[in-house]
Design a protein around this nucleic acid. Sequence first.
DNA 1: GAAAATAATGCAATCGATTGCATTGCCGCG
DNA 2: CGCGGCAATGCAATCGATTGCATTATTTTC
Lengths: 346, 346
Amino acid sequence: MKRNRAATLKDIAAALGVHSSTVSRVMNPATRDMVGADVAARVLETAAALGYRPNRMAASLRTRRSHTIGVVLPDITNPVFPPILLGIEQVLAEAGYVALVANAGNEPTHQQYVVEQMLARQVDGLILATVTRRDPVVERCLEQGVTVVTVNRTVGTGGTGGTGAVPGVVSDDKAGMELTVAHLTGLGHRHIAHITGPQNVSTGMLRKSGFVKAMQARGLEPVVVAGAAYTREAGKTACREILDRFPGITAVAAGNDLVAMGCYDALAEAGVRCPGDMSVVGHNDMPMVDMFSPPLTTIRIPHHCMGARAARLVLDHIDGRHEGSPHVVLQPELIVRSSTAPPRRA
Amino acid sequence: MKRNRAATLKDIAAALGVHSSTVSRVMNPATRDMVGADVAARVLETAAALGYRPNRMAASLRTRRSHTIGVVLPDITNPVFPPILLGIEQVLAEAGYVALVANAGNEPTHQQYVVEQMLARQVDGLILATVTRRDPVVERCLEQGVTVVTVNRTVGTGGTGGTGAVPGVVSDDKAGMELTVAHLTGLGHRHIAHITGPQNVSTGMLRKSGFVKAMQARGLEPVVVAGAAYTREAGKTACREILDRFPGITAVAAGNDLVAMGCYDALAEAGVRCPGDMSVVGHNDMPMVDMFSPPLTTIRIPHHCMGARAARLVLDHIDGRHEGSPHVVLQPELIVRSSTAPPRRA
DNA sequence: GAAAATAATGCAATCGATTGCATTGCCGCG
DNA sequence: CGCGGCAATGCAATCGATTGCATTATTTTC
């Protein structure tokens, strides 16, 4: 029958006949040497004996530092996010921080609600994977001086790098499309279509403009079909449209892997063979796309690294280290598998 | 140039010439009617004007309720966990709670560390997806009277239901194997092997014993091969072993879908065709297994529901509602796709 | 040997919200 | 008219840890 209240600084202090402030100093390694070595030793000892665990909430209230970072995702079920989250957590953990994670969907009002909840819990910063090019949530955070970093996507229309107003870590989406087009034209394709992602998010816009630019640089006509969303369903619909309206097309550059999956669905339905009759390239290199039939050729993005860098960015910002560029652009890589082949008649 | 400190109860109180306790009562809907309607209205009004956001940390310190639940996962990168997390979050959000999520791997010392971090942040309860049948982390939590619920796995060896000492939400693993064996024998298979998961976790043990029981009930010889882990690599190794040591086997019941993926690898390598020469059944129905070649026949587990029920269980426990059984066993479902077929010569 | 510097520790306010209890004012009822 | 009772609000302690300042005890220095 033990005490059921957890031990506090005061309990330890009382047990040793010292003041709680002394115990506090011992507990913090940075101030430990302010107190005598013998006392410190005894404090540590009884702290262990009592199973003392500091109440970080109380500390946070006083210091205004919660050592907690809010991570806002649109949908953890999308396989690109788990590796990002993993990277974030590893870096945070090393620094003694933890992540408050929430799925906020795509609705700004709900996203705002989620962010409010996090702010009410005094998070020291936010990592947003939900941002649109012009994002009301980000704007509110900026107004209030909240530290915020974007990941995977960026705010602003700008070039590859974004506006710079909000730090962020992204893949070089334009470069990714250049790789895609280079690969496809290298195989002999000349009639290539791109199924876009949503144009209100940076990835959707940059991949599209990257595609157009890469095609034009080769003197080819870019065919662009709008995808309604980054989903399998949207990919299927868009691919059907290509099959109907652009019979000459021999290759599809999908906005991402989910969209590519939808292409597979549409092609199978229409009896068009991949890669025999139609090549498909994805974007993201989600786990398991190598198991598909055929294994998907796609653009690999360093997701884990992306999360890690984003976490480092927030932590740096919190500690006042505004070192280097606030914007990190990672280079993607082409992974050639079996969904691409030379066009039937070159 | 506004104030940079966030508005507090006192600020509102000062602005209206009332006491902060009055403001506090207005802010809490439950105590709102203790104060005059006119005053309440004015308080609400200036709170909005000042952009007041309650500091939940301060409230938590006083009330000893953080409205935060710790969720401990072995690896968010495993596709079974995101839907569970989604289910958890939805239920928590409805109740005004948020989730503190951490990947803790499989090492008990690191898991313990992660749990300590969460406890230090005063989580109101824990949902553990990491538990082994005899779990040191759970035992420590129990000692300290921490509310804990397991999900996906359960502690204890017991029957399907587990020991009952720790509430948990699981799929009926034995029933899942019964479905698998019934399906396979229904196709005409008589020589079936099972690649187990780790035997120190409940799913590994229950699926194995479920398999053995289902086979014996049909008078068939159960062939069991130990898988080193729930990974693609372990599945590949174990499947090779089956090919080598048990040439008569015509079907494999894999411990989970990742293991089934490994089987695909081993079969492809050995030039054994699936489902022609060898049928494969998975377990979990991870997203995208329908894209595999061939699409995987597997056991579907209601992951989302599992997470939701687990969250409800913690919340009930926190609110002192120990209603109903602390153990929830969900029924799995067989999803027949194309990795299973009658054996070559029945 | 006395003054000054230094080390070790105690004191008390503070962070922001909550809540049991005390106080004030008003109303109704006999 | 006076008192019980109720409604509305103020008061102050509290949650647990942190930290600037004050107070001792100890050492150094001249």
